[in-house]
Design a protein around this nucleic acid. Structure first.
Lengths: 123, 123
DNA sequence: ACAATATATGAATAAATGCTCATATGTGAT
DNA sequence: ATCACATATGAGCATTTATTCATATATTGT
């Protein structure tokens, strides 16, 4: 046994194992946790093929709920639940025309995000 | 995009209820289901704040598992599990140096996707 | 007021997901 | 070979999530 490692005033350890420096440096560059949570929430909306399909459909054309339902071949309820998620995260907007409600994409970020994702998987 | 207008009497049904025409038209423009699944799988990786944080950290600097673990303040096991998900979807790559394994971003799509997501939530 | 149509919502359930714990694998040094 | 260190992996558990079913709300027409 030797006690040469006994001056740990500064928590100093040998290089190679000590990450405190890099960690401290990188930490300052990271977005706030709130932002990271919001980001994760946003991408969670894209993390479902049903919603992705809806988004792609709306990219082609404004559509009412009935049309989307028929297009996806699922129940109207399921579609409505997903549309709610999509509009809560402001990825789609809607307008009413009588009994019918038409949905459309809210902005171009949606398209860009989908396109980048598409590019990634095509490799 | 849509120069084909639908006619009310096309299928002999009342106007307003019949979506078969739009649905047929939009259907042809949609990506294959396999692709949509893959896309959803990809975005699912972004749908977690831990992984997002790792990605942002790697955007700043190549990092070893120990550093990431310290940065996130979670167990090494949890980090390792998340890194596995990230490398399976080819969002990060890694290289070995002795006992240490360094992770880094795999391509720029990652950055673009994060940036677009960030733009969206900042509104 | 009532019926019909279009969409939304709440509760329940099955499947997926992230973390922890324990353990395994791999690498370098003694 | 054995030890110490760095990372990976499998099982189990608690939480989340997407769908279905039943029902509610909103709008139009009679």
């Amino acid at each position: 046994m030797n006690d040469l490692k006994e001056h740990d005033e500064l928590q100093g350890v040998e290089p190679g194992h000590d990450h405190t420096e890099v960690v401290r440096q990188v930490s300052t560059q990271l977005p706030e946790d709130d932002i990271l949570y919001d980001l994760a929430d946003l991408f969670r909306i894209f993390a479902d093929s049903t919603r992705i399909k809806i988004l792609y459909a709306l990219y082609e054309s404004e559509l009412c709920v009935g049309a989307i339902t028929q297009l996806l071949g699922m129940t109207q309820s399921a579609v409505s639940h997903q549309l709610r998620a999509l509009k809560q995260s402001k990825l789609v907007k809607y307008r009413r025309e009588g009994k019918t409600i038409f949905y459309s994409l809210a902005d171009e970020h949606v398209v860009t995000i989908l396109a980048q994702g598409m590019e990634h998987i095509e490799e």
